[in-house]
Design a protein around this nucleic acid. Sequence first.
DNA 1: TCTCCTTATCTTGACATCGAGATAATGGAT
DNA 2: ATCCATTATCTCGATGTCAAGATAAGGAGA
Lengths: 169, 169
Amino acid sequence: MQSPKPFAMDHVDFITQQWERERPDLDVTAMGVIGRVARLYLAYQRGMHATFAEFGLNAAKFDVLATLRRSGAPYTLSPGDLLKATMVASGTMTNRIDRLEADGLVKREVNPEDSRSFLVGLTEEGLALVDRAVTAHVQTQAQLLEGLETQEVETFKELLSKAQAAANS
Amino acid sequence: MQSPKPFAMDHVDFITQQWERERPDLDVTAMGVIGRVARLYLAYQRGMHATFAEFGLNAAKFDVLATLRRSGAPYTLSPGDLLKATMVASGTMTNRIDRLEADGLVKREVNPEDSRSFLVGLTEEGLALVDRAVTAHVQTQAQLLEGLETQEVETFKELLSKAQAAANS
DNA sequence: TCTCCTTATCTTGACATCGAGATAATGGAT
DNA sequence: ATCCATTATCTCGATGTCAAGATAAGGAGA
């Protein structure tokens, strides 16, 4: 390492350097950024997975329970509302509700205003579980960001928002 | 909205505000960051998916073909090497190789040095396809970052690296 | 050479997801 | 009242993934 300033090569650097050798005609600048977003997402997923498992949950189940919980009392939403909030396919949501119902964490209730639909509500156990799980979850998330300065976190959040806006245009 | 500076609320803001109302005891600062990383990752995935589909590929297939391509001539790696590079389970890689072989994009060749193993190599069509696909892919990636200044991209990349290091500690 | 531990890949079963089509209720227009 | 387009959810088949166990070859030591 002759570089004047210390440089630790990570996996994304390794990949972009391979491409630069094999395909020097390509500009892999964007790959360096997008690849890092992907890796970071996976690292966060791995970290949060363990917390979900402590409560017998996975990300999919937590997603539904948390959506119901933060919607506020009486903690009921239609499958359609849940679909919009979680961005999965309709068959996926049916399956998630089925499994959560089998676990006793949610129940399907009649919708007095529209009998095509019904309401998915947290059971007592579901409410208690998600309240404990989300408490642990935010702690895990805070640990995953430990080591970043407050100012860095703020800058990071702004750049993430800008990048999101750029990607959607 | 009395805020002195304009503030566009996005989906992650909506979620964190719901939690602040329902569970004011929780600090959701980290959720604001991790949630944005997750959303950005999904946005990038959606954007890149269309490019893969143009070539009859998906992210999984492209992942394997690109790993072989950037490894350099003769574009062969063992399933074990591919496993390490792509971080999926062994059964997943078997399945990916099977499908790429059915597509005629890779072929299994005997490994003269170890007959427990074999070598997965790009076919002529596989090499031609991945070279065209990766050219389009880096263009798509560049478009996804269009709108960010060069300096912002640099800062973003540094923060992503820092965040990755923080998450892994 | 035989044994046994290790390494490398495949097989299998469970599960999550998607997307297209099926089913059923709503609500406006005639 | 009836029709029909719309809305809401479920069903079903295909795919992709994982984890654990099975299969098979390598390699070290007696």
